[in-house]
Amino acid sequence: MEKFINIGLIVVIIASIFGGRYYYSQNSNLESSIENTQKKIERLRKEITATKSKVNTLGIRQLNNEKSRLEKQQEQLKKQLESI
């Protein structure tokens, strides 16, 4: 009886060791994957920030201002042309 128990314990121990080792390696992979993913997310966020900041550097507002200024100027020039 005691042998069977010991064998069972040994089996449990072995199974626990293998199972734990398996999960340990899995966890390592998962953590590594998580870490990589987090780095990737971080990189993506940086890129998003950079992209958003790049949008600001495109100068759309300045172009809009320039466009409206040029449109006003065009109106004035047309009036001037008509007036000649």
Partner: peptide, 16 residues
């Protein structure tokens, strides 16, 4: 040892 390995394995499982 069995308890400890079981705990460790379980912990690993849950951690997983």
């Amino acid at each position: 040892l069995a308890v400890l390995t079981l705990i460790w394995g379980g912990w690993m499982y849950f951690k997983n």
